[in-house]
């Protein structure tokens, strides 16, 4: 079974997104910020990562840049899931290594569509 790491400082978002991603056939893991996610990725890389932008300690943007520098760190498919909707910031996220981008609020259709576009389902 494919794995998806859900990185968000909101427990509610982790729970809602986790349920949707499980329905798409993934085993889910959780991290509460970028540093937590990076620590987990250093132990084992997931197939997909759904990551928020604004989080304490390490934000999603720094996490993605550091992830892509890890050995094999270019392999996980990264989908941002954030309230940030400025075009310039979306472009920065893509340049940093994001594969797709979800703007909150989201629903199951949006996550499924973005995972399909990223080749995950």
């Amino acid at each position: 079974m494919k794995t998806c790491l859900i990185v968000d400082d909101s427990r509610m978002i982790r729970r809602v997104a986790g349920r949707i991603v499980k329905d798409l056939g993934f085993e889910t893991l959780e991290a509460i910020n970028g540093q937590d996610a990076l620590d987990k990725c250093m132990l084992e890389l997931p197939d997909a990562i759904l990551v928020d932008w604004a989080m304490p300690i390490m934000d999603g943007f720094d996490f993605v840049k550091k992830l892509r520098e890890l050995p094999g760190g270019d392999e996980p498919t990264v989908v941002f899931c954030t309230s940030v909707r400025d075009v310039s910031r979306i472009v920065e996220a893509l340049a940093a290594g994001a594969d797709e981008y979800i703007m909150k609020p989201f629903d199951s259709d949006i996550i499924e569509s973005k995972f399909a576009l990223a080749g995950l389902v």
Binding site: R85, D86, V87, I90, V91, L94, E100, Y101, I102, M103, P105, F106, D107, D109, I110, S113, K114, L117
Partner: peptide, 20 residues
């Protein structure tokens, strides 16, 4: 809408062909 542009449209197409 926010929902329309997130169904089927790659984000690269969104930033290239749309303005908020």
């Amino acid at each position: 809408t926010h929902f329309d542009v997130q169904r089927g449209l790659p984000v690269r197409d969104l930033v290239q062909y749309f303005e908020p």
